[in-house]
């Protein structure tokens, strides 16, 4: 599959990434070049017929069972919540804040 600049830029938009000068500035030449090369290499997979193969998403074996529906320790939980909020990047009162969502 040939992958063009458009595909690279669409992925960048989905991933909320900008192209920086290191990537060849606004045109992203270096990025697109590397990206095209890497994706092109992946086509090596076309050599194999996997039509009858069940995908393997994880090698996990004997995983844990679901946990019981028991609430956390109240005091420790409150302390942790406080700590997470306190260490937040931008916090106003009891809230995390971000630019206005329209």
């Amino acid at each position: 599959m040939t992958v063009d600049k458009k595909a690279a830029l669409a992925a960048a938009e989905l991933a909320r990434l900008e192209l920086s000068p290191e990537e060849g500035g606004e045109l992203g030449e270096k990025l697109v070049e590397d990206f095209t090369k890497i994706v092109g290499y992946m086509d090596i997979l076309n050599e194999i017929d996997t039509s009858l193969v069940e995908p393997l998403y994880s090698p996990m074996t004997d995983p844990e069972e679901p946990r019981k529906d028991v609430p956390r320790d109240e005091e420790a939980g409150a302390e942790k919540a406080r700590s997470i909020l306190e260490k937040g990047t931008r916090v106003s009162g009891h809230f995390f804040t971000v630019p206005r969502v329209v």
């Binding site: 989905l14 990434l17 990206f35």
Partner: peptide
């Protein structure tokens, strides 16, 4: 975009891009 691009290095951004694709 600015936080992710500024906070994550080039190789990390490259892999995120590939993985997103």
């Amino acid at each position: 975009k600015k936080s992710r691009t500024g906070g994550l290095g080039r190789e990390v951004r490259r892999r995120i891009l590939l993985g997103t694709f």
